[in-house]
Amino acid sequence: MAKFLKIIPERCTGCMQCELACSWVQTGTFAPSRSLIRVNIFDELASYAPYTCFQCDEAWCLQACPVNAIAIQPQTGAKVVIPEACVGCGLCTIACPFGTVFYDPKVSKAAKCNLCDGDPACARACPTHAIEVVDADGAGWVESWGQRVQKSFVEAYGALAAETAATAAKA
C-alpha cells in the first residue's frame, strides 16, 4: 500500500524533533541541517509548518533524473534516491515543484524523503502528532486543507471567488 506523510501544521510547536529524528536516520548524528523534513517558521504569523516530499504521482524528480537514480520503492510507493547511481547533477532538485529534494554537499548526492521503509522516524518523534503516516488512497486530508485555502481565498476576494468556485464545482 502506498503511503505518505500527512502534516497538520496547527499542531506543530516548532520543536524540531522531526528534524532531529530524520537527521539521525540519515547521518547517525543529530544534524538538523541535513534533515529531509524541514520546519518552516513564520514568526509573525505564529505558525510553524513542517514540509517534506509528498511522494507525488507525477514524480518530476524521477522523470528529470538523467541516470535513473530515483526509483519507486514497491512496498511504500516512496520515490527513493539510489546513491550508487546518483551523479549529483542536482537536476531533480530543480525539477521538484515543491522544493523537497535536497542536495547534500557533504556527499555530493541528491537526498529526499524515503519514508524510512514505511515507518518514518519523524512521525514517531513528533510529540504533538503533527505528522502522521497515511495510506495514499485515503488522501482525505487534502480535502480539508483545500477547504481552508478556499476559505481564506473567499475571505480575501469575496463574491468573485465564490462565483468562480461555484462555476468550477459545476464543471
Binding site: 510547536t13 520543536c15 524540531m16 524533533q17 532531529l20 505564529a46 505558525s47 510553524y48 510529540p127 504533538t128
Partner: peptide, 11 residues
C-alpha cells in the same frame, strides 16, 4: 499558539 524551544516536548 504555544511554541516550543528546540527539541522540547512541553512547549
Amino acid at each position: 499558539a504555544n511554541k516550543a524551544c528546540f527539541a522540547c516536548t512541553i512547549a
